[in-house]
Structure formats: C-alpha cells, structure tokens
C-alpha cells in the first residue's frame, strides 16, 4: 500500500509569483517526514503540490516532477482526482462535512467511489475509526452529526475519513495547530501508529512535534519577502535537531532565527 515519493526540481508558481524554487527530496514508504520552516517559506505549498491540491488556487502551476513509486503525478493524462484519491490529505482545521453523520463522514470517500454495500461500508467505518483511535469514543453515536464532536475528535474523524479510502500516502497540513495540547498528543500517537501502513508527510510549526513524530525532517526557508521559498536541507530528524549541516537550520532550530 504505502508508496515512496520522489520530488525532482520542483518549482511552484502562482501566476507570476515564484513561490517555491528547486525542491528535490525523497520520502521513503512507511515513514514520517516533517516539513518545518518559518511562515511563508513554502512548506505548505510543497505539501499541497504533492497531491495537486494547490491547483485549487487559480494560476497555480508547477515545473519539475513528483513521482509516486515512479509514476509522475503531473504526467500527461493524469487526472488530479485520481492523484488525490491515492494521496489523501488532512487539513489544518478539522473539516468534517457538517450535514453528514459521523458514519457518513468516514465512508464519504468510498461512497463517492461507488461502494453501496452497507455491510462493507460499516466494516470500513469501524476499521477506519479504530485506526484513528476514535472508535471507542463515538461507536454509540455514529448517526450523530460530525460537527458535534470536540476539535480533537473532529480532527481524528477527518483522519479516519482520509484513511478509509486506503490511500498510499497521507499528507497532513499542520493537523494540530487548531487543537489543545491533549488532543495534539492523541494525534501524535496516532501518527506514529499510522506510519505502519502509510507514508506520511506532515507540515508543522511545532519543532518539538517534528522531533517527536518524524523520521526525517526537511527545513524550508526563504531569503526575503517576495523571494521564492527553498528547501535548505533534508536529513534524519535526529541529525537535523542535533547536528544540522546548514547554519540556517541550526539558527532556526535554536530559535536564533531572523
């Protein structure tokens, strides 16, 4: 299931604005890669370009290639819908569909894909909710609206929704920034469990979080306002946090940034 990602010479533009410059990195399967860096450095943009979500913004385009187990997601004839079906995403703010029940939220992706078998849907629902460590908390109220859950529960519901379609890769865009510390801890535990089955890329502002959950860390930076963001270095997390090869990384990690 889990697949590797190889990004080669990726440049991202919004209209004339060159947002990200020359990113090359690899994400091995069944691992957690964290993207860190100051605001505006392009880390979220790179993340969103990994499943072509950045295309939601008009004028966005990319140069370079993003290979999923060798297949270019920007290749000719590749439908972004197929890419997103294969590479799931969890967002900064929990976004369950407000008109749907908890169960319907979890199986929304499968329903779209045309699965109608109720038993199968129920099975996937339970498996995904268990996978997201949410089953015990919501099993008695699967038919209640998803909006009624707490913020942390909603985020885990969104993770359940994302893993229900069994994607190859899971992208997470600051999944804990809207949550309290206890919910954050629950999500971090979950991420560690999920990496048994999925390739995970996570953007985070929280360096302790990157240090706790990730196997490798990529540090992004930008030279100045209006300049494109770039990848400074990517290495094993322990090395980035103890002995980075770049001065800028060390400054950022130790809070001497700027």
């Amino acid at each position: 299931m889990a697949k590797r990602i190889d990004v080669k010479d990726l440049n991202i533009y919004y209209g004339k604005f060159h947002a990200v410059e020359n990113v090359t990195l690899s994400v091995p399967p069944r691992s957690v890669t964290a993207f860190i860096g100051p605001s505006g450095c392009g880390k979220s943009t790179v993340l969103r370009s990994l499943n072509r979500m950045h295309e939601v913004i008009p004028g966005a385009r990319v140069d370079g290639s993003v290979l999923l187990d060798g297949a270019d997601i920007y290749g000719a004839g590749v439908d972004p819908v197929e890419v997103r079906r294969t590479i799931g995403m969890v967002f900064q703010r929990p976004n369950p569909f407000p008109t749907m029940s908890i169960r319907d939220n979890v199986v929304a992706g499968l329903r779209l894909a045309g699965t109608k078998n109720r038993q199968q849907l129920d099975e996937v629902c339970e498996r995904s909710l268990r996978g997201a460590n949410l089953w015990e908390e919501v099993k008695d109220r699967l038919n209640k609206p998803g909006g009624g859950l707490s913020g942390g529960q909603q985020q885990r519901l969104c993770i359940a929704r994302a893993i229900a379609v069994q994607p190859d890769v899971l992208l997470m865009d600051e999944p804990c920034s809207a949550l309290d510390p206890i919910s954050t801890l629950a999500i971090e535990d979950l991420i560690t469990e999920l990496k048994q089955d999925f390739t995970i890329v996570i953007v985070t502002h929280n360096m302790q979080q990157a240090a706790r959950v990730s196997d490798q860390t990529a540090f992004f930076n930008l030279h100045g306002v209006g300049q494109p963001g770039r990848l400074v270095e990517i290495d094993e997390t322990s090395r980035i946090f103890s002995n980075p090869s770049q001065r800028a990384t060390e400054d950022y990690i130790s809070g001497r940034f700027g």
Partner: peptide, 13 residues
C-alpha cells in the same frame, strides 16, 4: 473553502 478542499482531498470530482 475547507469543506471543498476536504472533498477534493478524498478524490471527489
């Protein structure tokens, strides 16, 4: 917008 993105990320047309 986050609703729309949520659906897109599930691979919705």
């Amino acid at each position: 917008k986050d609703q729309i993105e949520g659906a897109l990320a599930l691979g919705a047309t």
